[in-house]
């Protein structure tokens, strides 16, 4: 059995491999190449070397967006994971109606980002109306608005991952801890959290990359106003690509840098949280 699989594995892999080449490798390499070109459409690219990467810093919007996005990511990762984990703890305690609560918390995740953005824009502006302000009054309004929105959307999803992790903890480990006289807090700290580290890894990874790559919510909620100060990286790249004639290559160069940053941060995070994972 094993031997025949080993012999035929290349054939079984072929369709996926082809799809991977067509859907990822080729576009990726094209994109990389385009970042060194001047072009209007992807078909008339002209190689110009590194000048796109230099032009990228000609206005400081890119650095501002990078800084703003990083700050946002830190806030989002911490709040989403802490809240999602707390809710998961609550909903694994055999409370009545657990399933209903789980469904309710998960629901926001089913709504698309752009719709969510507009819904929350209405809500926020409705509240700010009492103070004669709107979301675009300052960049920090946009920041916290986006944070609330993303929390609302992602907590349910991360909660499900944590619930799966928590329910997988063998009861005998907890029981043993109890017999040894551990308090609830000690059980949480010494048993539950180390045992759900695989869930933490995946949840932190998802929230990290999602908040770094946030686009549609940003576009719908503030569209970068006021004066591009609430513009996150993905939106900045989009605006560069379409905002001026001749800046398509610069947008592409920003996208390459963006990819490198996201990949680096995500790999570092995986490396560090993986090390904390334990086997029962």
């Amino acid at each position: 059995m094993n031997r025949s699989v080993r012999k035929y594995f290349s054939i079984f892999l072929l369709p996926t491999f082809l799809a991977f080449i067509l859907g990822f490798v080729i576009p990726f390499i094209t994109g990389l190449y385009l970042s060194f070109c001047k072009f209007t459409t992807v078909r008339d690219a002209k190689f110009i070397g590194l000048s796109n990467y230099i032009k990228m810093f000609s206005d400081n919007t890119f650095l501002h967006s990078l800084w703003y996005t990083s700050l946002f990511t830190v806030f989002a990762v911490v709040t989403i994971n802490v809240i999602a984990f707390s809710i998961a703890l609550l909903l694994t305690r055999n409370i009545k109606g657990t399933n209903i609560f789980r469904t309710v918390f998960f629901m926001p995740n089913l709504i698309g980002g752009i719709v969510l953005g507009y819904i929350w824009q209405l809500i926020f502006n409705g509240i700010l109306l009492y103070f004669d302000k709107t979301l675009t009054f300052s960049a920090s309004y946009g920041f916290f608005g986006l944070l609330i929105l993303l929390n609302w959307q992602q907590i349910g999803y991360m909660m499900i991952i944590y619930i799966a992790g928590i329910s997988n903890i063998p009861p005998d480990v907890i029981e043993a801890a109890k017999i040894d006289g551990a308090t609830n807090f000690q059980i949480l700290k010494k048993v539950t959290i180390p045992m759900v580290m695989p869930s933490v890894t995946i949840s932190v990874f998802l929230t990290l990359t999602n908040s770094f790559k946030l686009f549609d919510q940003n576009l719908a909620l503030t569209a970068g106003e006021p004066s591009g100060k609430s513009e996150m990286l993905a939106l900045n790249i989009y605006n560069t690509f379409y905002g001026r004639a001749g800046f398509e290559g610069v947008g592409q160069a920003k996208a390459v840098i963006f990819f490198i940053i996201v990949a680096l941060v995500a790999l570092l995070q995986l490396y560090f949280t993986r090390r904390k994972e334990v086997q029962a």
Binding site: T136, P226, S227, G228, N239, Y242, R244
Partner: peptide, 16 residues
């Protein structure tokens, strides 16, 4: 377009 957006943002910030 970028120029128009810049003017638009500034007009809005002046207004608010």
């Amino acid at each position: 377009e970028q120029w128009k957006d810049g003017v638009g943002s500034a007009l809005l910030e002046y207004a608010q």
